[in-house]
């Protein structure tokens, strides 16, 4: 359902921009989802119904943006994952798009470009941290994938040796030493 409210109105001057973010799998099941406005989709039941509806309307058409139930949803998919960012229907669509880009790019770096469900589930902790670094209660906290990932992925030894910086190598060496001493 497209909201065709033709009455003009200015955007509200607030930091509370994001109404929700979610990652769904290729069957429309929730992998991670956060809703930041108590008045919009307050219960898990309503949220999941909305997600199912959203997925049905978007999984075939790769059309970037949809107006659904009074929300503007921007989205992006890869292999078997779907990323969504939701905002009010009176919101700057490009602002929402920039949040989606931060989310997608951060997750993509965290998964070392293997943006697929299996890899994501193996790195769920880091992805949860990234979610938390991007948006705090509806406020855009950070938009730079570099710094988001810097604060979400901290396990030096998971990175292939060639891609590690000197600091990371030292850190993982220190950690390995610590572990060998603990045994």
């Amino acid at each position: 359902m497209v909201h065709t409210n033709l009455e003009g109105s200015l955007f509200e001057p607030t930091l509370y921009i994001v109404k929700g973010m979610c990652i769904l799998d290729n069957e429309g099941n929730r992998i991670l989802a956060k809703y930041y406005d108590k008045d919009i989709l307050p219960t898990p039941k309503e949220q999941k119904a909305f997600e199912k509806n959203l997925f049905n309307k978007t999984h075939r058409a790769n059309a970037e943006i949809i107006m659904l139930d009074g929300l503007t949803c921007v989205y992006k998919s890869n292999v078997d994952l779907f990323f969504y960012v939701m905002g009010s229907s009176h919101e700057n669509e490009l602002l929402l798009q920039s949040v989606l880009n931060s989310l997608y790019e951060s997750v993509s770096i965290l998964l070392r470009r293997n943006v697929e469900k299996r890899v994501l589930m193996d790195n769920l902790d880091s992805v949860m941290l990234a979610f938390d670094e991007i948006c705090d209660g509806g406020v855009i906290l950070d938009s730079d994938p570099g710094s988001i990932v810097g604060r979400a992925a901290l396990r030096g030894e998971d990175v292939p040796l060639g891609e590690q910086t000197v600091v990371q190598v030292l850190q993982s060496a220190r950690e390995q030493l610590k572990w060998s001493l603990l045994k």
Binding site: V2, T4, E64, I66
Partner: peptide, 8 residues
């Protein structure tokens, strides 16, 4: 191709 755009 985007239905929201076309409807608008």
């Amino acid at each position: 191709p985007n239905r929201s755009v076309a409807t608008l």
